[in-house]
Amino acid sequence: MAKLQRGESECELEKGVRVSVEMSDSSEDEGPEEVAFEESRSAALKSEEEKLQAAKREKELLKEKRRKRQQFFQEQKKKRLLSDTLLEEFDTVPQKQKKLSDDRDEEKDNKQQKLTKSKKKKASRSLQGNCSVMRLKDESADSSMQQSAMDFIQARLYGSGTLRTTNAELLSLEKKRGVKKGAAVQFVNKKWGAEQKAKAEKSNKRFIHRQKLVTT
């Protein structure tokens, strides 16, 4: 970061110099001003020196920053080192836990089975009946994933654009085309097509009603 910033500042400096040169060029239109070679040379050298010095300054600033940071880190470390004994205590506890979980992943050796068994027993002691503990969050996530997978299948097989018909229609078609001809299924089986029948009756009623309206 620091380097980049430095680079930018250098560019700006250079631009400034150029602009001043141009300005002097524009003023030359009226007539050349006499500038001695020595003078111009010294001016150029000066500007060079200034540049170098600026760079040096920035470098030093950066160094100091780094030094300060280093110091800060060291102090931090010292602070940590102070609580070494405490830290060790902390360290030992999580390590044990890790071991347990690792073993569980690595599958059941006899020892681990015993361990888990004892755990179960503990759980059953504290919980009434044969209960087990699990995270609700996991279950809901799993079931929502399963649901979305099922929805995917449903959408692919029965969603829009899949050109599906109904079972009643299929069976009726078989009756129509088969060797044994018969009426459509919804007429044969009274349980079926109840919706359509209700609809038909409704529209029938409406029709009659309308007819009456027309006659009166």
Partner: peptide, 19 residues
Amino acid sequence: LVEIAAQLPAPVRQKKFAT
């Protein structure tokens, strides 16, 4: 079996000639 067939999910719609 017809009653089992009635409860199945929807079959595909196939155009049969003259139906």
